[in-house]
Computed example of a mutant assay.
Amino acid sequence: MKKKIRNIRKNNFDPIISKNRVKTYETFFIFGRHTLNTTFHIGLQDISKEDVDRVVKIIDETFQEVVKQGFEQSQIDALLHQFELGIKHQDENFGLKVILGLIYSWIHDTNPIDSLQITKYIEKFNNEIKKNPQLLQDVVEKYFLKNNHKLIATMNIDDEYAEKKKKKESQLCEQLISQCKDKQLIYEKGLELQKRQSAPQNVDVLPTLSITDIDKKVIRVPITQGQIGNTYVQLCEQPTNGITYFRCLLNTFELPNELKSYLPLFVNVLTK
């Protein structure tokens, strides 16, 4: 649906851009699930006050278009693959992301452990959409077209905001200073804090690692040697949440020199 909203830019948003004389616009789509009642936000930046109603109309018409035309299966598959890889891929913050992801389950009173069964829910979704190809259109119609609970908010620039903020901060400082009874004590505490912060730190309390703490035995990962056609391959089984990672070497010896400058672009596209 995000892609469909972006695709209407040429026919609908470009006149607004031209009218407001801005080079581009910025949209954002946010699904808020951090509260018991979930929310969906659509925002458009750098437009004039006169175009607010028109933007709201464009968004409503886009939802109607989605319900009428539906979604391409290739878009659904790509989004599911992206979602599954984003959840299962193990990076340096994998554990933290998993723990934070469980918060939404607790908020909505579901079993947090059950929410980790990503493959099960993806298969369930695929089975349901096979039974009802209009599943996503029905959801959009129910929660967007027929849902009257919505809020339209506009934010306008205040040219005097910086000056007003500076004035309020100055007034607050004067108020706090006037209410302070023992200024000398605060001053002395500040000097004591500065002295402690400037003192050399005791490195003995920091955790350390010595050479004796490192195991001399190298943990070797078993690798299976194989061959596919004329290509030699190496297979290594690892706990990667069902994701297969593929690495290869490409011989670019016969690649013309005028095309070698495009290799970084080719690699970037191929690995996305």
Rank of each mutant, 00 (worst) to 15 (best):
L100S: 09
S115N: 07
T119C: 00
T110W: 00
I107K: 02
G101K: 05
H89G: 05
E92R: 09
L100F: 01
L102D: 15
L100Q: 12
L96E: 14
K120H: 02
V98E: 13
H108G: 01
K120G: 00
L102I: 03
T119R: 11
N93E: 13
L96Q: 13
L116H: 00
I113W: 08
S115L: 03
I107V: 15
D114C: 00
I103D: 15
F94Q: 06
Y104A: 08
E92Q: 14
I103P: 05
I113C: 02
D114G: 10
T119N: 12
I107N: 08
H108M: 00
D114H: 03
D109E: 13
D109M: 13
E92N: 09
L102G: 13
S115F: 00
I103Y: 10
H108D: 14
L96H: 11
H89N: 10
S105V: 03
T119P: 00
L102R: 09
V98T: 10
G101S: 11
N111G: 14
P112A: 01
H89I: 11
G95Y: 04
D114I: 10
F94L: 04
N111L: 08
D91E: 13
W106A: 10
L100N: 12
V98Q: 15
D109V: 15
L100G: 01
T110E: 06
S115I: 04
P112F: 02
D109H: 10
H89Q: 15
L102W: 07
I113D: 06
I113N: 02
L102S: 11
E92K: 11
Y104M: 08
G95H: 00
L102A: 12
D114V: 09
I113F: 11
W106E: 15
Y104H: 09
V98F: 02
G95F: 07
F94H: 15
N111Q: 12
I113Y: 10
H108P: 09
N93L: 11
V98N: 06
Y104L: 04
E92C: 00
I99W: 15
Q90G: 02
S105C: 04
F94D: 14
V98S: 03
N93V: 09
Q90N: 08
Q117D: 09
I103N: 10
H89V: 08
L102H: 03
D91W: 06
Q90I: 13
V98Y: 01
G95R: 02
G101W: 09
S105L: 02
P112Y: 00
N111D: 15
I107E: 08
P112T: 00
P112S: 03
L100T: 14
F94P: 12
T119Q: 13
Y104Q: 10
F94K: 02
D91V: 09
T110Y: 03
G95M: 10
H89D: 07
D91Q: 13
Q117C: 03
D114N: 12
I113K: 02
K97W: 12
I118P: 02
G95T: 06
H89Y: 06
L102E: 11
I113S: 00
I103L: 07
I103K: 11
Q90A: 06
Q117A: 02
G95A: 09
K97D: 14
D109Q: 14
L100H: 08
I113M: 05
H108T: 15
N93C: 04
T110V: 11
S105D: 13
T119K: 06
K120T: 10
L96K: 14
T119G: 07
S105W: 01
